[in-house]
Design a protein around this nucleic acid. Structure first.
Lengths: 150, 150
DNA sequence: CTTCATGCAAAACATTTGCAAAAAG
DNA sequence: CTTTTTGCAAATGTTTTGCATGAAG
């Protein structure tokens, strides 16, 4: 049934992906990916902050450069949050998200069946003048009292 | 089958909505709504520009004030575009969108059946710590050659 | 008249750009 | 060595804020 999602690429797999896209394996890129392996979904600011707390600080501009480039190459993907920030997603494959609109946090929702259902249904429809490239499904949710992270 | 969508509120109906929310029917608000009746989906900048071309220029700050307030009250809704701008939607009821990622334009997609299908299916699922408030479905599309608006 | 709304100028933010210096292969 | 990448400082563009003035009810 619900096929397990793509595993998060290890650092070595990430190196391979970089090579495939003619990107050099700099220590800044590896550091960003190491942090993204934990965060999964994060803004440039989040990544920058996490790197401060680690061994490898990387300036915010460089974090932007790196994250933008990785998502341009479809190694990562990106989403816009309700608070007007860009969030990067370590997983570039389309998948359903649950968005916490108070804390601006995303979680992945495992439901391949539903994704397939919606996709196959919409793919049948034609929209004059357009080629549909993807379908984005997001549950907008509010944390219940006990779950409040902030 | 596909039930027709909410008609766009006329100026009079808009006045009523304002009254319901204890908002005064100022000429700036009415001018903004008059423009939104045509644009349907628009950024603050778009609305500001359209008002320039009309009888009632309204400064950009005021357009922001008005649009933000109207969507806070759920008279309008809002969406973030791929180019990091806030777009306001005259229709606050959830509905499926087609997003033109080159021109940053939205169109409504009529498919109540699909919306119902997805909603009922996801409503059955429980997400620990969260209350699902809405489901957002968006087709990301690229204009075909002939359709290029810009 | 009392309360709410507008609109100016300025601030606040997130993100991008140009480019010289540094690192990778 | 050649090419790519980093990272600084500065710019850009959108949205927000504080507050005095003006309009609505």
């Amino acid at each position: 049934m619900a096929r397990p999602r793509q595993p998060i690429p290890t650092l070595d797999e990430f190196r391979t992906q970089l090579r495939r896209h003619d990107l050099r394996a700099t220590k800044q890129r590896l550091a960003v990916h190491a942090v993204m392996m934990e965060l999964v979904h994060a803004s440039a600011e989040d990544v920058h902050g996490a790197l401060e707390l680690r061994e490898t600080p990387v300036p915010l501009t460089s974090v932007y450069n790196i994250l933008t480039q990785l998502s341009d190459k479809r190694i990562y993907s990106r989403r816009l949050s309700g608070d007007n920030r860009m969030y990067f997603d370590i997983d570039s494959r389309p998948h359903i998200h649950l968005y916490d609109r108070e804390n601006h946090i995303w979680r992945n929702v495992e439901d391949e069946e539903l994704a397939t259902l919606v996709t196959s249904r919409l793919k049948r429809r034609k929209f004059k003048g357009y080629t549909v490239e993807g379908i984005d499904i997001q549950l907008v949710a509010k944390p219940t009292r006990k779950n409040k992270k902030i």
